[in-house]
């Protein structure tokens, strides 16, 4: 079985959640705010103590050092953080030359200072920052929350293409049902302490 596998994961209000995210596919999670979507992502990234088993391609989360796990299973938070003054300092050498056109940045963006970026620009760059790590799994927490409709769809197309091409198992927290409809292979909604599969155009 290749991909991300959650077995009986418990964190916060969520209890015994089991879920499979095959490689190259997008599993969307939705639910009211405070229902524990983000915390479930944090459990998968091993940022919070949690119950249950999580594995990636049969590699158990607890069997490798945490930073190694997080290098393969990269989470992009809803509010991305930037700690150096220059954009380029957050990226590995040469990332600027491979900057995808779909992000809509000129090549000089790497020389910009972080303070002049808008929240939408930060969010797009944060997605690129995660992808240059070449992860095997991506955990996206409302990745298009600060974007307008047009760039949202452009970013979605780019992400889906990367996910397909690099065979990344993707767990995507979203609230917009139109977006879920566009990107999800499978969609779960959080109801109380459990996940409930959502079918069709719902």
């Amino acid at each position: 079985m290749t991909g991300l596998l959650l077995q009986g994961v418990s964190i916060g209000v969520l209890n015994e959640v089991s879920l499979t995210v095959p490689r190259g596919q997008v599993v969307c999670l939705s639910g009211p705010s405070g229902s524990g979507k983000s915390r479930l992502l944090r459990a998968v990234a091993d940022l919070e103590p949690h119950g249950g088993q999580i594995s990636l391609d049969n590699l158990n989360q607890q069997s490798v050092p945490a930073h190694q796990w997080r290098r393969q299973v990269v989470m992009v938070p809803a509010e991305s953080q930037w700690w150096f003054d220059e954009v380029s300092a957050h990226f590995p050498e040469g990332a600027g030359e491979r900057l995808p056109a779909a992000l809509g940045f000129p090549a000089e963006v790497m020389d910009w200072s972080v303070s002049r970026l808008s929240s939408g620009e930060r969010q797009r760059l944060a997605l690129w920052r995660a992808l240059v790590q070449e992860p095997d799994a991506l955990l996206l927490d409302e990745p298009t929350a600060n974007l307008d409709n047009e760039s949202t769809e452009a970013i979605e197309r780019w992400l889906l293409q990367e996910i397909e091409q690099r065979q990344i198992a993707t767990l995507w927290v979203a609230h917009d049902s139109a977006q879920i409809h566009r990107v999800a292979n499978v969609h779960y909604r959080i109801r109380g302490s459990a996940l409930e599969p959502v079918h069709g155009s719902d």
């Binding site: 990234a45 940022l47 945490a66 930073h67 190694q68 997080r70 290098r71 393969q72 990269v74 989470m75 992009v76 938070p77 509010e79 991305s80 953080q81 700690w83 920052r129 995660a130 790590q133």
Partner: peptide, 22 residues
């Protein structure tokens, strides 16, 4: 104060020493 920054660095696969460097 910098909880979010530290956790974002951890999310990108940095070790705790790297995330705490500054």
């Amino acid at each position: 104060r910098q909880r979010a920054v530290i956790e974002n660095r951890l999310m990108l696969g940095q070790t705790w020493q790297q995330a705490l460097e500054d």
